[in-house]
């Protein structure tokens, strides 16, 4: 023992070495974080610089064109908006219902277990596989064709796990006494869910929905797979307007219309050899980034606000 004992200097040297390693590692951690931050800045900065000359009102009101200078994103942003509408209308009710079922109704048995494992696994399925699913089922089996409806439903399936998981987490944070109180005054299970659980879980659910939609609006691969066109110079028919002489559009005709979306428009422009289209791609990319980042920022803010406000 006595021989192994270190002198004070040696101990000090050891401590200094340990501290140095700590500091080096800390610097590496900060460096890695900084790389992430730099990438975001480079991305946004580059897109703004390159795309600035095209970022004007005409860009938003012009259709795609073979001439880069007059090409715009009208059909793309309208398409994205309509597809997101379908996605939200399909994914929110389904996802919330599934989340409520799993938290409030499901018995602990093998069926529930299969559903839960399934949801976890679906979250790891590559998005292009959803595109193949949609191509086989929605486009050909159901005969929806390469329409806004097919695309919206595909993206709804894609973000369903996100909505379900966030619904479940939000519900799990509600203490049991809320349910007990509601049931003690004679409410049924559904009444408890309808008037207490779902309203109280709403901020959490909303956060999940926004994050899901932000993911969906940037998704390209599944929509290309179902066969969205890359060159669309018209808008889906507005309900009750005249499409052709004597033909009035029904309220839901737009669902079956061919379409394009923002990411596909960007992909189309980046894959053209003419560098003039790079400017368009940069401008459209900036618009898409702005949409996605602001949606994410709203979600993050909502969650932050929620964490601060809730006191049971």
């Amino acid at each position: 023992m006595q021989q192994n004992a270190l002198t004070t200097e040696q101990v000090r040297a050891l401590i200094a070495k340990g501290k140095l390693k700590d500091t080096i590692f800390q610097a590496m951690g900060i460096l890695c974080l900084a790389i992430g931050l730099v990438v975001i800045f480079l991305l946004v900065g580059d897109m703004v610089m390159r795309g600035a000359e095209r970022l004007n009102l005409d860009f938003f009101t012009n259709f795609a064109s073979r001439r880069a200078g007059s090409a715009g994103i009208l059909s793309a942003w309208v398409g994205s908006l309509l597809v997101m509408t379908v996605t939200a209308f399909a994914a929110v009710p389904l996802g919330v219902a599934a989340g409520v079922y799993l938290e409030e109704y499901a018995k602990r048995n093998w069926i529930t277990e299969i559903i839960e494992i399934n949801i976890t696994n679906l979250a790891a399925v590559p998005s292009i596989v959803y595109g193949l699913l949609a191509l086989g089922i929605f486009v050909y089996q159901f005969g929806f064709g390469q329409s806004i409806l097919s695309a919206g439903l595909t993206l709804a399936l894609l973000i369903l796990p996100i909505v379900i998981v966030s619904t479940r987490e939000a519900i799990r944070a509600i203490p049991a006494m809320i349910r007990e109180g509601s049931m003690a005054v004679g409410a049924t299970r559904w009444q408890t869910c309808r008037y207490h659980i779902i309203p109280y879980a709403m901020p959490g659910i909303l956060t999940g929905v926004i994050i899901g939609l932000a993911r969906a609006i940037g998704e390209t691969a599944p929509i290309i797979t179902i066969g969205a066109l890359t060159f669309i110079a018209f808008l889906p028919p507005l309900p009750f307007t005249e499409m052709a002489p004597g033909v009035t559009a029904g309220p839901f005709d737009w669902l079956m219309s061919p379409f394009t979306v923002m990411p596909i428009q960007i992909f189309n422009w980046t894959s053209r050899p003419d560098p003039a289209f790079e400017i368009n791609a940069a401008a459209a990319g900036f618009v898409l980034m702005a949409m996605v980042l602001s949606m994410n920022a709203v979600a993050i803010w909502l969650r932050y606000k929620m964490r601060k406000n809730i006191k049971w």
């Binding site: 975001i40 691969a221 980034m289 996605v292 994410n296």
Partner: peptide, 23 residues
């Protein structure tokens, strides 16, 4: 840091593709 990372994770992949090709 966590929200910033989340923002990075939320960037559409097509934008990353553009970034890879042109930068």
């Amino acid at each position: 840091a966590k929200p910033v990372l989340e923002l990075l994770g939320g960037i559409p992949t097509i934008v990353f593709g553009y970034f890879a090709l042109l930068m």
